[in-house]
Design a protein around this nucleic acid. Structure first.
Lengths: 139, 139
DNA sequence: TCACATATATGTCTTATACATATAGTGTCC
DNA sequence: GGACACTATATGTATAAGACATATATGTGA
């Protein structure tokens, strides 16, 4: 499947525009595809646990992206398997246990790649909106 | 499922933010979700057949959205079932048969609704990009 | 004790998308 | 005339991202 460099034992570095099997994704991966980059940006600011990330992402997007908690935790597990984040249980006494996530170097590289894609997507979206405005009686 | 107005015999008007069964969609429906609005915008300009739409959408988005032809034709059929577009075979002699699509009034209303959502999505995307730029060493 | 917030997690269904493939007509180049 | 490319529409199928429901446990305040 992968024509990996023989000197490179590690998995090929995943890109946001391709799935695990190497298949291409159009404008970044998946649907609105704002959840993964939003999560990476939030984690780049500071390590956090899942429940915090939900609110950080809401705040960052002006309330427009409200992550499904189930999906968020699943995403975090997947990102950990992929080496994008690491996690550890916090020892702190009070309240339910928390798993704290940290971005790895690979995670930062993935975020940088995401940013390029988000810029492309914004350009496409801008062009589309401009084209649409010509057709719709302006509100 | 639907608490439809007894005086309203027609299907409830579909919105881009909800699926056929009324379940909500986050930022417009489905994934990058640029295909449906791009298609509606292209059809608002002028009636067209599917193959033309592929290129119109590519051109409109600066080449960033390259529709899958299979998906495009399926989308057109679905939109026709929903009353968003109508179609008719063209009688013209030369070449393979073409099915020409036209936007209905309901289609124009759907497009107007889409435009609001695209604006919201652009705002969310802008906020996200700004937040991300603070974390990523600018290229 | 009951409700509520915090915190993590699984189950499951739907559906857009990505890719492959099938079909048929038309033109052209050798 | 056969190979090939382009136009044009369409189906088959696998994947993975949501969207929603639900389960669990801990702590707090009424």
């Amino acid at each position: 499947m992968y024509e990996s460099d023989p000197g490179d034992i590690s998995r090929p570095r995943r890109r946001c525009c391709q799935a695990a099997d190497g298949t291409q994704r159009q404008l970044g991966r998946g649907r609105g595809a704002l959840l993964e980059p939003a999560l990476l940006i939030a984690l780049a600011r500071s390590e956090a646990h899942g429940y915090d990330l939900v609110r950080a992402i809401e705040e960052m997007t002006g309330g427009d992206v409200v992550p499904d908690t189930g999906g968020l935790y699943r995403l975090l597990r997947r990102l950990e398997v992929e080496g994008v984040v690491t996690s550890s249980w916090q020892e702190s006494g009070a309240g339910p246990q928390r798993r704290e996530y940290r971005l790895t170097d690979e995670g930062r590289a993935l975020l940088a790649h995401w940013m390029e894609h988000l810029a492309v997507r914004r350009d496409a979206l801008d062009r589309l909106i401009r084209a649409g405005m010509e057709q719709v009686p302006h509100a």
